[in-house]
């Protein structure tokens, strides 16, 4: 059984974009955390996490994003989430943490200043 998750990393100008592909649960959240840590080391001005290929996220995934937000704030990186589907949105809503994040509907919107 595949425990890993592909986290695609691209850059658009100075903006770093991470796109995990697959469920983010207890087994896979550490891989996403590792990818975020590597991007943050490069100190991009903005980090966009594209969740459009994430069908499911549990509290491990949400905790990973909370950590990403905290480390981004410390490093003066603007963190933007994009492409949250309704199922993932439900998980965010129940934890009442969605308001902490900057969330945009599309990648183009997330890229805009």
């Amino acid at each position: 059984m595949n425990q890993t998750i592909v986290v695609e990393r691209t850059s658009v100008g100075a903006v770093a974009v991470l796109k995990p592909r697959g469920d983010i649960d207890m087994a896979r959240a550490p891989f996403v955390r590792q990818a975020i840590t590597l991007v943050v080391r490069d100190r991009p001005p903005k980090l966009v996490i594209d969740l459009s290929e994430v069908a499911y996220m549990d509290s491990s995934g949400i905790a990973t994003l909370v950590e990403a937000l905290q480390v981004s704030l410390r490093n003066k990186i603007t963190l933007v989430l994009v492409g949250i589907n309704p199922r993932v949105q439900s998980a965010f809503e129940i934890t009442k943490l969605v308001g902490m994040f900057t969330v945009k509907a599309s990648l183009a919107e997330a890229m805009a200043n």
């Binding site: 649960d25 207890m26 499911y56 549990d58 491990s60 309704p86 199922r87 439900s90 998980a91 129940i94």
Partner: peptide, 21 residues
């Protein structure tokens, strides 16, 4: 409904994750 199915799956997943962790 889909939203409740998703949340129920999430709750069971969290319960099992807690046992493991």
């Amino acid at each position: 409904f889909e939203k409740n199915r998703c949340l129920m799956s999430l709750a069971i997943d969290e319960a099992l994750s807690n046992v493991i962790r």
